[in-house]
């Protein structure tokens, strides 16, 4: 039997066992049971070695992530078929009822939509400009080779924008948040034009 087939079989066995252990370390009533869950997590980490041996570090890591997700979904599906997980004692019920949107008058709805649109406009273009300014600052002033600095900046841009967007949308004080964003843009400009 070729070595690769053996490694593949071993990797799949370890990965499968890790997911089974993770599933066994969880119960619908108690949630996480620490010891089997921790063993499952450790075994899952060990499975990455097999994937790396089979496909190298780059492909192996992706296959490990993807097969972990699909394996976990299979565990969830298997639990459903066994009739488990059907209790209703979770936060979800209370949250859903608490979050139900009450009926509102038309004018109130209109003003709510106006505020939401304004908030999203600030979370969009304004935060994007802020993220671009900070990313350019990274690209220009990071003490790396140009290729490394530019790619760091390019990868930072979505994270900065996403972070800013989340904070803007979640913020209770929109005006203060807008001022902070504008101030950040203004502060970066002298560095950018230098």
């Amino acid at each position: 039997m070729p070595a690769n087939t053996l490694i593949a079989a071993f990797t799949l066995a370890v990965h499968g066992m890790a997911l089974i252990l993770l599933r066994a370390g969880w119960s619908p009533e108690r949630g996480i049971i620490r010891l089997p869950f921790a063993v499952g997590l450790l075994t899952l980490l060990q499975a990455i070695v097999g994937w790396h041996l089979l496909y190298g570090a780059e492909f192996g890591t992706i296959y490990w992530f993807v097969s972990s997700s699909i394996g976990a979904w299979l565990c969830v599906a298997a639990s459903v078929r066994q009739g488990l997980n059907t209790d209703s004692r979770t936060h979800a019920g209370s949250i859903t009822s608490a979050n139900s949107t009450p009926s509102r008058s038309k004018s109130r709805r209109g003003s709510q939509w106006g505020k939401r649109s304004l908030r999203l406009a600030i979370a969009g273009p304004l935060t994007l400009i802020c993220a671009v300014c900070i990313s350019l600052l990274i690209a220009r002033h990071l003490p790396f080779e140009p290729a490394n600095a530019w790619v760091t900046a390019a990868l930072s841009l979505p994270l900065l924008w996403a972070g800013g967007m989340i904070l803007t949308v979640a913020s209770e004080r929109l005006l203060r948040h807008t001022l902070w964003t504008t101030a950040s843009i203004t502060a970066t400009l002298p560095w950018l034009f230098r």
Binding site: R23, V76, A77, T90, I166
Partner: peptide, 27 residues
Amino acid sequence: GVILCGLIVTGLLAHPSLLKDLFRFRN
């Protein structure tokens, strides 16, 4: 793509009982 990143982060942070519900599916 940025919005997707934002949704993943907020989704994970909005789920306090993430570990407790790890395999739960109330079909």
